[in-house]
């Protein structure tokens, strides 16, 4: 123990960038790490990455916008992801999404105004035996339906 947690997210980001300085092909790797640290990839983060890896900013932006995983908007404190893989779809994922949309008053892909919840219909999570599956900040909830999903939310209010 005894280590101080005073390192800011920006310090951490700069460390990652330093580790890959000038390595153009590590762009996606670094963006992953950057998003883990910062939560999302706003312009100033993209600029720092561009400078560090020595790639043009427009290329960084091109990559960020190409891949679904990268987000330029902040996400909610609790990130709800409803799996929209085929198995979940066939077993009722759409009903789970609409129940949550109604409950939270937002559409999939949006974040509540208080910044608490964001909701997304995501690509297959590969846990098909639990279909329909929902995750909240990586914790998985299986065999969902609209009511159960809304009930789970209550733990996070």
């Amino acid at each position: 123990m005894g280590t101080c947690n005073c390192k800011t997210a920006w310090d951490e980001l700069h460390e990652v960038i330093e580790a890959y300085r000038g390595q153009e092909s590590a762009l996606i790797e670094v963006l992953h790490r950057a998003q883990e640290i910062m939560g999302y990839l706003p312009r100033d983060v993209q600029e720092a990455v561009a400078e560090g890896l020595n790639v043009p900013l427009n290329k960084v932006y091109g990559v960020v916008s190409f891949y679904h995983h990268f987000s330029v908007e902040p996400k909610g404190k609790y990130q709800i992801a409803v799996c929209y893989g085929t198995a979940c779809y066939v077993k009722g994922a759409p009903a789970v999404v609409s129940a949550l949309e109604e409950k939270l008053g937002i559409k999939a892909g949006e974040t509540t105004e208080d910044g608490k919840f964001s909701l997304a219909a995501v690509r297959c999570l590969g846990a098909c035996s639990l279909a329909p599956v929902m995750t909240i900040n990586q914790k998985a909830y299986g065999m969902m339906d609209g009511d159960k999903a809304v009930e789970v939310l209550q733990q996070y209010e």
Partner: peptide, 11 residues
């Protein structure tokens, strides 16, 4: 990359 949604063999 196992992109097929609903497949989990490779995983």
């Amino acid at each position: 990359d196992e992109g097929d949604p609903g497949a989990f063999m490779d995983r």
